[in-house]
Design a protein around this nucleic acid. Structure first.
Length: 416
DNA sequence: TCTGGGGTCCTAGGACCC
DNA sequence: TCTGGGGTCCTAGGACCC
């Protein structure tokens, strides 16, 4: 028997949430009614558009483009800074409301989720009517709009929610594929990004329909497994389950940041790595995992990206150990080119309830672990900034770099 | 185009082993 | 060794998602 899946997508999420919050706090202006955007600070070199209002669309403002470019297209564009804690709370409120209709919810990102409604039909009735009900309740009770796609699998539900925006419910059942999905440009398909569009165009494939009706063996030849995947998607074939998000399914934890100035000396680079390692290690301990692999990445001032990684014998969650690995990796890779961006990531995670300790290491590690624990507690009880290492004083580098702390739920992946 | 930060997965090549 | 081949692990880089 066939499933019923919803995909629920918040319209211009960051911007809508920002607008609602401002209205609730007495701001007379609804950001959604004027050309506006949520964006970073160009002075700190974080100047890109993160979300835009619908009135900004006619100016061809694009998510991801620089604020400079955006202002050139629309000098009156109202830009506000992001507030991720607010967005997380807004997202949580929405999920809570949706939970009243099904417990089978997969949070796909901060502003998107999948809902398996199959078993709830006998309780709530017609899925499409329920989708409208959810949409209206979110609008009335939370103040923002969503687009909901309804279908028999996640891929089709996701495509459906994109067909009509904002504030809409759209179906895309298998029998509607040829009429509703096939005429779309192939780049609209999930997992067909810029690089794949180019390769497909080269084969004469322009629309999703072209792809669906192409010889899958030829696709396999030039696109490998990706070719089979997107061919299946173009034909509406996809059957992954709606996975209830559990944060224990995390595969890696990383932080990275663009520095307001170019780093051209080892000392500052090390300080930045320490700052990133502090955050990564705190999140790692919070996740109850240990990591076996540490990687660093950087971007030079001419936007060249390089990375280096290494596996280590003994999994760890200690700040100082992760930092030392990161520093060694960095020193092995860096040739002195000025840097604009640095990142630290840990992966190959394993449960932390059972660790084989080398006898020699045992004492030092326990001491380290205690220190980390105390710092984590103080940072939790007061403010994260309440404890910082002296070496950061006057350095121009923040003692902790990176976001996504406490309410970790980053299960956003490119895989359904 | 003066261009963020959080992720996941796949592929290719070399090392190493049998 | 101017020789074969398969399996697995490691690493770098790139593709995609939001």
């Amino acid at each position: 028997m066939s499933k019923v899946i919803f995909h629920i997508d918040v319209n211009s999420a960051y911007l809508s949430w920002e607008a609602v919050h401002r209205l609730q706090h007495g701001d007379p202006l609804d950001l959604r009614t004027v050309p506006s955007a949520v964006g970073g600070d160009p002075i700190k070199r974080h100047g890109i558009i993160l979300a835009k209002s619908i009135p900004a669309k006619p100016f061809k403002i694009q998510t991801g483009e620089s604020l400079m470019a955006a202002f050139q297209k629309c000098p009156t564009l109202k830009v506000v800074p992001p507030r991720y804690d607010l967005y997380l709370r807004s997202s949580n409120a929405m999920i809570e409301l949706i939970s009243e209709y099904s417990s089978q919810i997969q949070r796909y990102s901060i502003d998107e989720c999948f809902v398996d409604f199959t078993d709830m039909i006998k309780l709530f009735g017609d899925p499409i009517e329920v989708a409208y009900l959810i949409k209206e309740r979110i609008k009335k009770e939370l103040g923002f709009t969503v687009s909901i796609g309804v279908s028999s699998n996640k891929l089709l539900a996701k495509v459906a929610s994109d067909l009509k925006k904002p504030d809409a419910v759209t179906t895309l059942f298998p029998e509607e594929i040829s009429q509703k999905m096939w005429p779309l440009p192939v780049g609209e398909l999930f997992m067909v990004g810029r690089a794949t569009v180019k390769k497909l165009n080269f084969l004469g494939i322009e629309t999703i329909g072209d792809l669906a009706n192409y010889d899958v063996d030829i696709l396999k030849g030039s696109l490998k497994s990706q070719g089979i995947l997107v061919w299946n998607y173009a034909n509406g074939i996809e059957n992954s389950p709606v996975k209830k998000s559990n944060h224990l399914a995390i595969k890696s934890i990383g932080n990275s940041s663009t520095i307001p100035f170019d780093i051209d000396n080892q000392k500052e680079a090390h300080l930045m790595l320490l700052s990133l390692s502090e955050m990564v290690a705190m999140r790692l301990r919070d996740s109850q995992y240990l990591a076996r692999l540490v990687s660093i990445t950087y971007k030079t001032n001419n936007f060249n990206s390089l990375g280096h990684q290494k596996k280590f014998e003994i999994p760890t969650d200690h700040t100082t150990e992760i930092y030392h690995y990161a520093r060694t990796l960095f020193d092995e890779l860096w040739d002195g080119t000025p840097l604009r961006h640095l990142g630290v990531r840990v992966s190959e995670l394993c449960e932390n309830d059972f660790v084989q300790l080398h006898l020699f290491d045992a004492y030092a590690r326990r001491k380290n672990g205690k220190l980390d624990q105390v710092i984590d507690e103080l940072r939790g009880r007061f403010e994260p900034k309440s404890i910082m290492r002296g070496c950061f004083v006057g350095s121009g580098i923040k003692p902790l770099t990176g976001g996504v702390g406490e309410d970790d739920f980053p299960l956003m992946s490119s895989i359904l």
